[in-house]
Every structure is written in structure tokens, then in C-alpha cells.
Design a protein around this nucleic acid. Structure first.
Lengths: 179, 179
DNA sequence: TCTGCCATGTAAGTTGTTACATGATTAT
DNA sequence: ATAATCATGTAACAACTTACATGGCAGA
């Protein structure tokens, strides 16, 4: 359900093709709402059927034609309505924690190895976020109102990746005590 | 896919019925892998077909009969194999962040209200986790190896709920600056 | 009497995943 | 040559959600 809202929210900023959206779901919106290109194409068709978005076919030289989607008034209204509705806490699904939970069944090194790998991955994401912060939000005051909201989502990303790295270190520390 | 592992991991600790599992997915495992009773019943059937678990029907007085499921050797081996495989970062889906991202489209109060609600919900979870910590993990040294792994998952819960509460406060602070 | 718990499931619909398919361009 | 990128999709399957269905017992 929220995939449609994620797409609408992306299209508010600029008109985009399915391909563009799939790309931008690798950054920005994608940091807190992931989706594959197949999901996006299917959802775009549905949104177009409902009249929330409209397509403009753009023929290009040396490249396949693309459909540039933009928000209709109806789509914008739908997005605003959704913003006024309360939402639940998002369901948690953390495979790593599931492994840790059952970790006593195997040698401690197996779990430690996996935690180290994840520490690395989270540290990389944190670096990505810090770079975005430096590039786009070094001067928060100068940002328009739109920027402030984007910054808040970035802040949460930084907080959670920092938390993950800390947790991995603590977990490795505790696991290393007495074998 | 991991739902099956979550069920197997639960059954390691004790034999349980579908109903029991649905309950225990409200606590412990459920804190990082949520599932409804419908998902669980279906998955139990699949796992039984594959021979990973075995059922024992228990007739009760004044209550419907229940099927007590327990791990087979095969199921235990399957779980151990899975523990040795690396896993990806879990995909993020945070509806609240999606709302914040598009928050510039509506009055700031609408978003602030929702952030406050979520602050409350996260604070409640944090209290739950702290209570579990006090009840079961006040003396970590006395815990068996199994307990240490459970404690690590609890630690992560505490860290992330603390992070959420902090983020909500920061976000509300930033949103309240200059309207 | 009504709510909630115990205990199990079915059915329909929506999402999400994985694999397949096409075809030109650009970089190595 | 080969791989990767641009750009679009279809199809089959797996997972998840929501609603419906049953029926007895315990407590307010």
C-alpha cells in the first residue's frame, strides 16, 4: 500500500520514468522504502489506471522511448490525504537478530563472523549518509522547507546506522567473554 | 523464507502448538520477526511436510485438541545450516519516514502530531524491554549460554527504541523552529 | 449476556521475489 | 569481444494481509 505513496512522494519532486524511479529508490526514498523495478512498474500501471499519475511518452535517439510520469491533482490530493492518516509502527524483520537468537546452536565464531560482516555493511551506509549530509545539508539554514524534511529522514538514517555499529561492537565484546 | 527459521528457532526452546507460537511471536522472537497466526499455521504445515518438525496431538478436557510441534533432527540440522549462511541487511520499510519525507505538503502540525504518537509507542516498547531486562537479565553472569544470545537481541531492541525516542525529540525540535 | 481466551483453519486479494525477454549504446 | 548501462516490461511463484468461520469455556 505504501509503495504507491512512496512513488507519489518521489514524483512530487520531479517527473520520472519507471527506470528513474527504480534508480532513485536506490537512494533517498529507497533508504527507508525499498522496492525493485518490477514492483515499481506494476504499481505505476495501477496508479495510472486510477488517475493519480499521468504519463508522457518521450522518444529518444538511440534509446528506447520512456514514459515520464508526473503527479495529477488527484494524485497530489491522495498523497495529502494519506499524510493526514495515522500509521502503525512498521513491522520489524531482522534476519541477523534471528541468527543471534539461535546462535547458541553453533560455534560462537560463526555468529561473530556474521556480526562483523554486518558491522562493515552498516559502517559503509553510515559513510554514505555522512557524505550526503556534508554535500546537501552542511548549511541547514539555507535549505527551503522541503530540505528540512529530507534532513530529518537522513538524521534517522545516521542515528540507526550508528546504533547498529555500536551494537555489533558490544555484541562482539560480549560474545568474546569466556567461551 | 526466514519465517520458517524463526519457527524452528522457537521450537528449539520448547515444543509448541500453532497457537503457542502465535503468542510467542508477540514477544521474544516476535520483537524482530513478526508474523500472524495465519502465516504460522501455513508454515507449520509446510515444515511438517518437509519433515523438519513433527506433531503430537494432545487432547484436552474442555478445550479443543492441540497439535504440539517439536523439532526433528532434520529440522535442527536445517536450522544449523542456515546459521552458517551469510545474510543480507534486512530491507527497511518505515512508513513514518515516508510521511516525514513528504511532510512539506501539509501543515507541519500534522506531521508533528504523528511523530508525537510514534514517540509514545516507542517509549512504551522501551519500557517493555527494560522490564524484560530487569526480570530475566539482571544477573547476566548467571545465565547459561543460551541466555547470552537472547540478551544480545534484547540489547538491540533497547538501543533502537532509545534511538527512536531521541530522533522523535530531535525532529519535533527542528520542526518547531521558525514556521 | 457479552467479552475474551483457547485453538484451529480457509479463502481471496495484495505485495514481493525471481527469472525471463528485448535491444541499442558505451566503456574496458 | 564482453560486460555494463539504459529502458522497458511479462510471468510464475512465494509471502503476506485481511476477512471469515467455528465452537466451547471462563470471568465480569
Amino acid at each position: 500500500m505504501s509503495l504507491s505513496q512512496a512513488i507519489l512522494a518521489s514524483l512530487v519532486r520531479s517527473a520520472q520514468s519507471g527506470y528513474d524511479l527504480a534508480k532513485s529508490f536506490d537512494g533517498s526514498v529507497g533508504f527507508f522504502w525499498e522496492a525493485t523495478h518490477q514492483q515499481i512498474y506494476r504499481e505505476l500501471n495501477k496508479l495510472e489506471d486510477k488517475g493519480a499519475i499521468a504519463a508522457q511518452t518521450i522518444t529518444q535517439e538511440g534509446r528506447p522511448a520512456k514514459k515520464l510520469y508526473s503527479l495529477t491533482d488527484r494524485g497530489l490530493q491522495q498523497l495529502k490525504d494519506w499524510l493526514h492518516q495515522p500509521c502503525e509502527l512498521s513491522p520489524t524483520k531482522e534476519e541477523l537478530l534471528l541468527k543471534v537468537f539461535a546462535g547458541h546452536l553453533v560455534e560462537p565464531e560463526a555468529i561473530a563472523k556474521e556480526i562483523k560482516r554486518h558491522r562493515q555493511l552498516h559502517a559503509e551506509r553510515l559513510t554514505t549518509y555522512r557524505n550526503i549530509e556534508r554535500e546537501y545539508f552542511s548549511d541547514l539554514q539555507s535549505c527551503p522547507k522541503e530540505g528540512k524534511f529530507g534532513y530529518l529522514t537522513l538524521l534517522s538514517g545516521i542515528k540507526f546506522e550508528t546504533g547498529w555499529v555500536e551494537w555489533c561492537d558490544e555484541a562482539l565484546e560480549i560474545l568474546s567473554q569466556q567461551p
